[in-house]
Amino acid sequence: MSKQETVLSVKNLEVAFNTRGGLVQAVRNVTFDLKAGEALAIVGESGSGKSVTAQTIMRLIPTPPGRINGGTIDFKGQDILKKSEKEMEAIRGKEIGMIFQDPMTSLNPTITIGRQITEVLMKHQNMNNTQAKERAVEMLRLVGLPNPERRFAQYPHEFSGGMRQRAMIAVALSCDPTLLIADEPTTALDVTIQAQILELMKDLQHRLGTSIIMITHDLGIVADMCDRVIVMYAGKVVEEGTKEEIFKNPQHPYTRGLLRSLPRLDQPKDEPLIPIDGTPPNMMHPPKGCAFADRCENAMRICAEQDADVTTHSPTHASRCWMHSAV
């Protein structure tokens, strides 16, 4: 597959959830592309729609209460949203792997780590038990687990948090997927293990040519790991660009707010971090204008009345803000 070939193309995706309180509009008109071998970060506060977007790509949204109201998800030339559940079972694990936020709840506690890998291999790669075991041990070794032959026969509760996350990566990568989705893969880990997991993912990306979508709120991970960045707020993409464009030349007030709240090594010790005042809007009743208007120090009257069009700053950099649309 060519380095510049588009692996995934999400267009105008709309996802909502029926709740007792009303309809929650979780993802609103989200559009982005992912190239072969590229690492893409999707960042934003909790509730911005990051994980729902990822789970929709995997077709893991429970329906009901969830429902996909519009859009397309084109994966290697095929619209995932038109696939049957049986067809999706052939894609999950084989073509698209996913690392979930909490490995303890994602791994089956009653089945050994080795069997959880061999089941995937026997289903998707048509391996026999002996071949699958050899491959599973190889994967456990690849993700840096010591004594993989012994770990193969152990259960998730016998692993530390970092080891469980490595095991999850081994499961996700066992079939050499084209796309790996990592949903907050280092949230529950200490910083030393975080660094090891990220280094492992980068190494595997370069060795296997895997495309990665990294769902995170940690901009430090983005700087270390990713090529491009999508910033989401209230279910919408408010800015996207290369890592350098987002960090050095952010254009949306929300992106600048996220960066101001991030500790910096060159920041004086007595200089406080600047939080973003206010809270995200209620997605059962999303604003008709810019969702960030109530928290934005530069908000104008039109911001509350109508959402801005997308402004292109470079071939790879765009944002949705009236400060640019008005120019």
Rank of each mutant, 00 (worst) to 15 (best):
residue 156 P to M: 08
residue 147 N to V: 10
residue 150 R to A: 14
residue 189 L to E: 07
residue 174 S to W: 04
residue 193 I to Y: 03
residue 180 L to P: 03
residue 163 M to F: 00
residue 156 P to Y: 04
residue 185 P to H: 12
residue 185 P to L: 09
residue 171 V to T: 13
residue 157 H to D: 04
residue 169 I to Y: 08
residue 163 M to V: 14
residue 180 L to K: 07
residue 178 T to Q: 14
residue 178 T to G: 03
residue 173 L to S: 03
residue 159 F to W: 07
residue 190 D to I: 11
residue 160 S to N: 12
residue 152 F to M: 06
residue 155 Y to N: 07
residue 182 A to N: 02
residue 162 G to I: 04
residue 179 L to I: 07
residue 150 R to Y: 02
residue 187 T to S: 15
residue 157 H to P: 10
residue 149 E to C: 00
residue 185 P to S: 08
residue 150 R to V: 15
residue 177 P to W: 03
residue 148 P to E: 08
residue 152 F to C: 08
residue 169 I to N: 06
residue 147 N to P: 02
residue 182 A to S: 08
residue 164 R to C: 15
residue 170 A to R: 03
residue 166 R to I: 00
residue 158 E to S: 06
residue 165 Q to A: 12
residue 161 G to I: 01
residue 186 T to H: 04
residue 151 R to A: 13
residue 176 D to V: 01
residue 170 A to Y: 04
residue 163 M to G: 00
residue 160 S to M: 05
residue 175 C to Q: 13
residue 165 Q to M: 01
residue 154 Q to C: 00
residue 162 G to E: 10
residue 173 L to D: 00
residue 172 A to Q: 09
residue 182 A to I: 05
residue 153 A to H: 15
residue 182 A to M: 01
residue 175 C to G: 07
residue 182 A to H: 02
residue 171 V to W: 08
residue 164 R to Y: 02
residue 171 V to C: 11
residue 165 Q to D: 02
residue 167 A to H: 02
residue 154 Q to D: 08
residue 158 E to P: 02
residue 189 L to S: 13
residue 189 L to D: 09
residue 166 R to D: 07
residue 182 A to Q: 12
residue 162 G to S: 01
residue 182 A to P: 00
residue 176 D to S: 14
residue 156 P to W: 02
residue 180 L to I: 08
residue 186 T to S: 00
residue 161 G to H: 06
residue 189 L to G: 12
residue 167 A to E: 08
residue 178 T to C: 02
residue 188 A to R: 05
residue 182 A to R: 06
residue 155 Y to H: 12
residue 189 L to W: 10
residue 192 T to P: 07
residue 186 T to Q: 01
residue 187 T to G: 04
residue 151 R to L: 11
residue 172 A to W: 06
residue 180 L to R: 04
residue 178 T to M: 11
residue 174 S to A: 15
residue 159 F to Y: 14
residue 175 C to H: 06
residue 152 F to Y: 15
residue 158 E to V: 01
residue 168 M to D: 04
residue 188 A to I: 10
residue 183 D to L: 09
residue 175 C to Y: 08
residue 148 P to F: 01
residue 157 H to N: 14
residue 168 M to S: 15
residue 159 F to P: 11
residue 148 P to Q: 11
residue 181 I to T: 00
residue 187 T to L: 00
residue 177 P to K: 09
residue 168 M to E: 05
residue 184 E to M: 12
residue 177 P to M: 11
residue 172 A to Y: 07
residue 169 I to Q: 04
residue 187 T to N: 04
residue 186 T to F: 02
residue 177 P to V: 08
residue 182 A to C: 12
residue 171 V to N: 06
residue 152 F to W: 10
residue 190 D to P: 15
residue 148 P to T: 12
residue 174 S to K: 05
residue 179 L to V: 14
residue 161 G to L: 02
residue 177 P to C: 13
residue 163 M to C: 12
residue 169 I to D: 06
residue 189 L to M: 13
residue 190 D to W: 14
residue 182 A to E: 03
residue 173 L to Y: 00
residue 155 Y to K: 13
residue 158 E to D: 08
residue 147 N to C: 05
residue 154 Q to Y: 05
residue 188 A to G: 10
residue 167 A to D: 09
residue 154 Q to A: 09
residue 155 Y to T: 09
residue 184 E to H: 12
residue 149 E to A: 13
residue 162 G to Y: 05
residue 182 A to D: 08
residue 170 A to D: 03
residue 149 E to L: 12
residue 164 R to H: 10
residue 179 L to E: 05
residue 172 A to G: 01
residue 175 C to E: 15
residue 185 P to C: 10
residue 171 V to R: 11
residue 151 R to N: 01
